[in-house]
Amino acid sequence: MSENQKGKTMISRVTALLLLLASGIAMSQGTLEVQTTVQKEAVTTNEDGERIKELIPAETVVPGERVVYTITFRNTGEEPADDVIITNPISEELTYVQGSAFGPGMELQFSVDGQSFGAAEDLTVEEDGETRTATPEDYTHIRWVMQSDLSAGAQGTVRFSAQLN
């Protein structure tokens, strides 16, 4: 390794450490990390006058506006992790946007009580003494069940959109 390469490695290590310190928010136990961000769509006009949708960090939101939650996770250890499940609550002020969930290699499930989870079409709620299929307004939680191991060094991303009531 040349001096130059060593220097680069050192810098990248230092940078990584600094990033970790700076963010200070990526939590981990053992060898897994999970992090979440919230964004919203902003429409801007470029120099050609075309309207472009882009995701910007969401700090404020108005009723009717949509936000996108992105959850990234990573196995930083040496061993594969089994039974990986990511669970995210859906605040009562938010309504899940139908069809917005993204999660390759994951089985998508919802819950209407935070206790039992199932595929959207299998969930029911009681209303006026009748049982009906749950709708996005009823969902209190969304979760992704990984269909394979999360091997050492691997990472994944899941995402969903919700609309502010």
Partner: peptide, 9 residues
Amino acid sequence: NTATLSFEL
């Protein structure tokens, strides 16, 4: 909003 990750190692 806080996400939860459960797993087995």
